[in-house]
């Protein structure tokens, strides 16, 4: 995969985000060299690159501002106030963005997900990630199914994903069933929680937050932005899988499906 190494990846950090190390590791495993830059340096434009100089930006998981007011809200408010033009330039230049957990919440509150039906982005929030139906944070592995024929670049060649879900506010909500239908029709739904039968589910614990129709991840109209609640950054090698220690041959049994998302995104960015 020539080119992967040349993909410029930005991982902003700080303010209570906490998954930057494993997210950076994912890219390193794949041969890229991500830049970890504190949000304050991006705000102050002290970093020698602007957002538009990057091919990929990952909004990592964590607890930016402690999930105070609502998950991702304070950070999104600050980005909107201080970096909107840079973000617009990044998107208009064809950049790829991934939001994981708190990062998904942040992209949603920035209005990038689900985003408008047609580009360009208008930064208008259209959905919420509400407190889990069964209240409280929960850390447990879940299974996700990639939506057939999704345009999402981050999911190209990926079918099924086993990853941990680790959040307290992940119930994707829009204004009514009709709006949900519309989102599905336009291909915004990228990932769903599935039950043991492999079908989308609203049932706990397979769906940890009770989201309608099992929605776990959303993509925008371009397919270059993906937000998801569970953590692909937590399954980068076979021994991340909780059952690896009791398997004779974990390496062939547990394909790291979290890493697959990063690989797909990186390859899409490399070939643009």
């Amino acid at each position: 995969m020539s080119g992967r190494r040349d993909v410029r990846v930005l991982i902003p950090t700080g303010f209570g985000l906490n998954c930057e190390a494993e997210t950076a590791r994912a890219f390193e495993v794949l041969g890229a060299a991500p830049d970890l830059v504190h949000w304050t340096d991006l705000f102050a434009r002290r970093h020698d690159r602007r957002l538009a100089d990057y091919d990929v930006i990952v909004f990592v998981g964590g607890f930016s501002y402690g999930d105070h007011i609502a998950g991702g809200l304070v950070l999104a408010t600050r980005i909107r106030a201080r970096l909107l033009d840079d973000l617009r330039a990044f998107l208009e230049g064809g950049g790829f963005a991934l939001g994981i957990c708190n990062g998904f919440q942040t992209l949603l509150r920035l209005g990038l997900l689900p985003g408008p039906e047609e580009l360009p982005h208008d930064f208008e929030p259209r959905a919420d990630l509400a407190p889990n139906d069964r209240l409280g944070y929960r850390d447990a592995w879940v299974r996700l199914r990639v939506e057939d024929g999704t345009r999402c670049a981050w999911l190209r060649g990926v079918e099924r994903i086993d990853v941990p879900s680790r959040h307290g506010e992940g119930r994707f909500v829009v204004a009514g069933e009709a709006e949900l239908d519309r989102l599905e029709r336009r291909g915004a739904v990228a990932l769903r929680y599935v039950g043991p039968d492999g079908e989308p589910t609203e049932t706990w614990p397979f769906n940890p937050n009770g989201s309608r129709r099992g929605i776990a991840g959303i993509t925008d109209a371009s397919g270059r932005i993906l937000g998801l609640m569970p953590h692909p950054d937590a399954f980068l090698h076979p021994w991340h899988h909780p059952r690896a220690p009791v398997h004779d041959d974990p390496e062939s049994a547990f394909r790291p499906t979290g890493l697959a998302i990063f690989r797909a995104g990186l390859e899409a960015a490399a070939s643009r």
């Binding site: 906490n18 998954c19 190390a21 494993e22 944070y137 929960r138 850390d139 680790r166 980068l236 991340h240």
Partner: peptide, 9 residues
């Protein structure tokens, strides 16, 4: 399970 046990990877 309300405590995270695998952040940091």
């Amino acid at each position: 399970r309300q405590y995270d046990h695998e952040v940091k990877g």
